[in-house]
Nucleic acid binder design. Structure first.
Lengths: 98, 98
DNA sequence: TAAAAATACTCCATAGGTATTTTAT
DNA sequence: ATAAAATACCTATGGAGTATTTTTA
């Protein structure tokens, strides 16, 4: 499972629409469709019920959505924190002398 | 970033040894070495200082380690919860009648 | 000098694309 | 009839492997 996949799923769940999500994510609709299909194969069950008018999360989909948001939040914080360290610390050990 | 990569990094950080981690993860030592190299390229800086005797995390590595553990924990919970739903709910809506 | 990590390749799986078809309202 | 998702196919990237070399305590 790639964190990118969680982003994809979150975008669909939020937009309730594959095409809109694909635009938001800057990937093609078929690629997004395939990604979700593969996620569903990996999890061994449907995450999303789709018709041409509606996109509805299954019970498992809802569970994943809740957790995906948390994981994505944590990952964003991680990146931000690492970026801070890169700017300030540059990965080196700093010994302060007053 | 794949969650698998966080697992790899976590294993190295915990074992303080690439070879041991590779064994634990059931992948080859060179593959693991390459994965970390690519992670470091993606983050744009070293995560681990390695000599033949020591594996030491950089400041960024330490930050990633802390967060990786949290994310991996969350992901494990996610999988467990989804497995529960699959067993019980089978993705369908259940209405209880007493 | 010996144990551990890095490098150099090879191979295959899969993420992503474009073109098109199917489906449901 | 139309808008949205699915399917079919192709390509390229990169994850994983084996064999080997480099490094440092």
């Amino acid at each position: 499972m790639d964190i990118r996949h969680l982003k994809y799923f979150e975008s669909i769940a939020r937009n309730k629409n594959f095409t809109k999500a694909a635009e938001e994510l800057f990937i093609s609709q078929p690629s997004l469709s395939n990604m979700i299909k593969k996620m569903e194969e990996n999890f061994g069950s449907k995450l999303i019920e789709r018709t041409t008018r509606e996109v509805i999360l299954t019970e498992m989909g809802e569970a994943l959505y809740v957790h995906a948001k948390k994981i994505l939040g944590l990952y964003t914080i991680t990146l931000k924190e690492m970026e801070e360290i890169k700017k300030i610390g540059k990965g080196e050990i700093h010994i302060g002398i007053i």
